[in-house]
């Protein structure tokens, strides 16, 4: 009996060691891999930040082949992403990292890349059907977005709560709608009982339109104390509108924003708190993931884990938002206020 127990224990240990080894899976640095980072389009700050993070990872992994940062123009995003993916396949690169703006229309091109042995990793925005994609590096969990926004509202309005409105991007932006729905879901919690959501309006991610929508909210709801804008365009427009109208003392702004664009409004109290994930980290983690898959150190399957440099260990799981998809969840949010926004804005 004792022997049996010992043997079992030894076996268990062996299994756990094996498991431990697998968990420690680390890509061997220094391999020359041609890798392409493909944003939705060029010329947008968050994508440049992701590029910066990917370059940092490339340097750490000592990949002698320079990272290619290729993207279409905004007007040509769909056809351009397909064209770049196809040309990268022709060139036989090792990995393509796509922030997908083409829905499932990218599938044939992505599949062709996979058939040629190219690692296809999506980030920021996945392939809806998950076909042609190895794994999606997700910035945050959609339901977490709702909780983070509800928490910020509570923190700004205080224990006594208050009334607020949402200034969103467009009525048909899938991610925005998911976040707003998640926030409404979170608001049902007892903790947020004193928060009252007045209205949801849309500024279509246009500065002028968002600015006017914010002012219209003030006119419509004199007792509103907060505008929550889960869009980096809307939040700046709302904060600017409140500042221009000298309303920052009575109506605060919060939501999802880029630190460098929000710095002034956070420091002068118009937008005391806002949140965002780090696009630098997202780019870094995406590169680490793609490199590990391309070198064979990481298999794109459920339960596989690997060490992503300075960001630590990550495990591939099923993506709860897509039936057939796999994801690596980066998280968590960074919440910015007076104390940390300056450092983040640099």
């Amino acid at each position: 009996m004792k022997k049996y127990l010992l043997a079992t224990a030894a076996l268990a240990m062996a299994v756990s060691i094996n498991h431990g080894v697998q968990a420690q899976a680390m890509a061997k640095p220094g391999e020359a891999l041609d890798m392409v980072l493909l944003p939705k389009f060029l010329g947008i700050l968050p994508f440049d930040q992701a590029h910066q993070g990917a370059q940092e990872a490339a340097k750490e992994l000592e990949n002698p082949t320079p990272l290619q940062f290729l993207g279409p123009t905004p007007e040509n995003s769909v056809a351009g992403q397909i064209e770049i993916t196809t040309n990268a396949t022709t060139q036989g690169v090792a990995a393509i990292m796509i922030s997908n703006n083409s829905g499932d229309q990218i599938v044939p091109a992505a599949k062709a890349a996979q058939e040629k042995g190219i690692a296809v990793v999506t980030w920021d925005s996945p392939i809806p059907s998950a076909e042609g994609e190895d794994v999606f590096v997700a910035q945050v969990d959609f339901s977490e977005t709702g909780v983070v926004m509800a928490d910020m509202a509570l923190s700004i309005l205080g224990e006594d709560g208050g009334k607020f409105a949402i200034l969103s991007a467009s009525p048909d932006a899938a991610n925005q709608n998911a976040w707003n729905a998640a926030m409404k879901e979170a608001l049902k919690g007892e903790k947020y009982a004193k928060l009252e959501l007045l209205d949801t309006v849309y500024g279509n991610d246009q500065s002028e339109e968002s600015y006017n929508q914010a002012l219209a909210l003030v006119d419509k709801y004199p007792d509103m104390e907060l505008i929550m804008a889960p869009t980096s365009v809307g939040i700046v427009a709302a904060a600017k509108a409140m500042q221009d109208e000298d309303l920052c003392d009575t109506v605060k702004t919060s939501g999802l924003g880029v630190p460098s664009e929000m710095l002034a409004y956070t420091m002068n109290g118009c937008a005391p708190e806002f949140a965002l994930w780090s696009f630098v980290d997202l780019g870094y983690l995406t590169y680490q993931t793609a490199y590990a898959i391309a070198t064979g150190a990481l298999k794109a399957e459920e339960g596989a884990s690997f060490k992503a440099g300075r960001m630590g260990e990550y495990t591939i799981t099923k993506d709860p938002t897509r039936d057939a998809g796999l994801r690596i969840l980066m998280g968590p949010f960074s919440v910015y206020d007076k104390d940390n926004v300056e450092a983040a804005a640099k």
Binding site: L70, G71, P72, T73, E83, T90
Partner: peptide, 16 residues
């Protein structure tokens, strides 16, 4: 021209 620029990794605004 497009294909050549694509293979030379010239994309986006430069190509346009």
């Amino acid at each position: 021209l497009r294909n050549g620029m694509g293979l030379a990794s010239i994309t986006g605004n430069t190509q346009t």
